[in-house]
Write a protein that binds this DNA or RNA. Structure first.
Lengths: 355, 355
DNA sequence: CGCTAGCACTCGGATAGTGCGAGTGCTAAG
DNA sequence: CTTAGCACTCGCACTATCCGAGTGCTAGCG
């Protein structure tokens, strides 16, 4: 058997895949002929399809059904066949405009990115907030709430905010708290955890104490909080567009719905991909169970890193059934990641992570 | 026809409902007899069931099917029939312990409440963060991020935090920002929006200016932000336990799933109930389309207010199909709302909202 | 040697008929 | 008022059947 690629085969594979992506029904030889007016007969197309099947790019579910792409088929399509047209200028403008409108509210960026991704890709989107590789102290605030209860607001260098309450041995006036905060803000300026722990250590051993009891309590809380935050790096994955995804015909039976919900909620199946995406530049496409096993076998993921290199980075992307409009999805993910990177660049003033 | 309630009828209604809640299958007369050993024959039970049907408490879907409760039936059950045993001491302890462990991280309370509710009620939970009726300024922080870009962290009296970035005409050193923040913190202490707007107004007209340009810019941002936050009072509804709910047999077809997802996402159907819940003390049970129309016809909601009266309040509860384990759900909602109220009481120092 | 017309063959899915079992509603008697 | 008995009603599962969509193969053609 001549298991080689040639132009005609490529064309047929491309058409089969595009047709399947569009209609979600197995593609018959006759249909390709009618719809695209190929210059050969359906029998020839069938022969080519059989060859493509030998190559591992197509299958069919039963004898009398049309062809369906395999994961390898999709992979070949994404790598060699598909059109790589970026989003239209109009779409780009629309998206950029939406982001412009929420430019001052950082927490809305994520939400917006998720919504836009989901809507244009008609699938679920996943977005992690921009985070620094290493937690670095930026600012701290102590606010007297009630009696000895104090609210601690901790702002990290990457914009992460954490609020936490704690109770002192005895009540302290707001001035004390403010003074303590000011002292610590100065001493911890831009410090990573290590530095702060060091300081704490030193302070406890050296006798002429420069910090008072309150300061120490707070420092202790801070290091704990920073550790926690660092442990859950990208731990939280926001997702949106469940509804859009459910409109895809593959979710006709509830079992699939449950499956995908579990996946999104647990972040399992997605988690293992994160380091890979963080390490690489550009859009990553994972088709079916290419990297993780079972859980993801029927799903594809299109992910990209975004952010400012060496400052803050996050991940955004789309998840959906392997039958996914790859060209459009990839363009969208790419574009939104550049927009987000640009906006972060404006704030952090570095080069954005994606060229 | 003697359409009256009597003890036997009540018992039968109760058993039918409990049985249906448990098995989700129509309840037959014979079954009640066998399972609960009633002292009458199945024919009598049938007669009683027919009477209960006349009263509007039961229906059946077709002639040869067992009985199923109507919304009115559930209502009667909740009001008069069901056992009102609180959660067991063990369960209470477990829950309280879980909350104790996250006592210092306010943002985790909501998440925990949602998770516990969902898990014990085996349905979706909804929780809104505790919010004040009226936005009141608590604290503000200005942090230089990069060049002229400044991060504004605004803390309201109810613990709401908002971060927002803005750009100045020209860069200012952190000291300027800190001084400005200190000034404003002092002047705006505990002020509601109105006060701040007044101040802003006055400052602009009176000639011997006490505040500088930076202060005014920030004040302006603050009022805008506070307005926005106030407009979306309880706008955000966290929900959890979708998966638990999907395990309920009523979600065997995907249409239902989509329906409920839309409802949760849009907050439609839930929104109209909020004022009602905020206005009343205690657990509110809304069965089927009792208050809103169509969208909610097949769902019930068990909600309660929580918080500290006149300080901060929020809502938490459970949403699920009308066939819901009301006694357990109600107890859980009630208990968690008291726990949350107690915890908030510890912070805000008032009487908790629920007796 | 590649292409194609023709045809047998294979399945899936829709449709209809059937029987069964679960429950009810009614009636008539205790 | 209760209940035994029974006719009646449906939903559901099962089977048989048919139809159409597609394929794979073969033989013949250029």
């Amino acid at each position: 058997m001549a298991v080689d690629m040639n132009e005609r085969r490529q064309l047929i594979l491309k058409l089969v895949i595009q047709e399947f992506i569009e209609t979600s029904t197995p593609v018959a030889s006759e249909l390709l002929l009618r719809k695209y007016g190929l210059a050969v007969s359906s029998a020839t197309i069938r022969n080519e399809m059989a060859a493509l099947e030998d190559l591992g790019y197509l299958t069919h579910w039963h004898t009398s059904a049309g062809r369906v792409p395999t994961d390898a088929g999709y992979r070949y399509y994404v790598e060699n066949l598909m059109d790589r047209t970026p989003l239209s200028a109009t779409e780009q403008r629309t998206i950029r405009h939406q982001f412009y409108q929420v430019r001052s509210e950082l927490d809305q960026w994520i939400q917006l990115a998720g919504a836009v991704l989901a809507r244009t890709a008609q699938n679920a989107s996943v977005v992690t907030p921009p985070r620094a590789y290493q937690a670095r102290f930026k600012h701290l605030e102590l606010i007297a709430i009630h009696e000895a209860t104090v609210l601690l607001v901790l702002v990290l260098h990457d914009g992460t905010i954490r609020q936490q309450s704690f109770t002192l041995e005895s009540a302290r006036p707001q001035e004390d708290l403010s003074r303590s905060a000011a002292r610590l803000n100065e001493r911890c300026h831009d410090a990573p955890i290590g530095k702060i722990e060091e300081m704490l250590q030193q302070e406890r051993t050296v006798t002429p104490a420069q910090l008072d009891e309150l300061d120490l309590v707070v420092l202790d809380l801070i290091t704990k909080a920073m550790h926690q935050l660092e442990d859950q790096v990208n731990g939280q994955i926001y997702s949106d567009g469940l509804l859009e995804m459910l409109n895809q015909p593959e979710f006709a039976q509830v079992a699939r719905v449950r499956q995908v919900l579990e996946m999104l909620q647990s972040g399992k199946g997605l988690g293992p991909l994160i380091p890979r995406v963080l390490a690489n530049n550009g859009v990553q496409v994972i088709i079916g169970g290419e990297h993780s096993r079972d859980e993801m076998r029927e799903y594809s993921v299109v992910l990209s890193r975004y952010g400012v290199a060496d400052e803050v980075v996050g991940i955004l992307g789309v998840i959906g059934p392997t039958r996914m409009a790859y060209p459009r999805t990839i363009s969208t993910v790419r574009y939104i990641s550049t927009v987000m990177s640009d906006m972060l660049g404006d704030i952090y003033g570095g080069e954005s992570s994606r060229a």
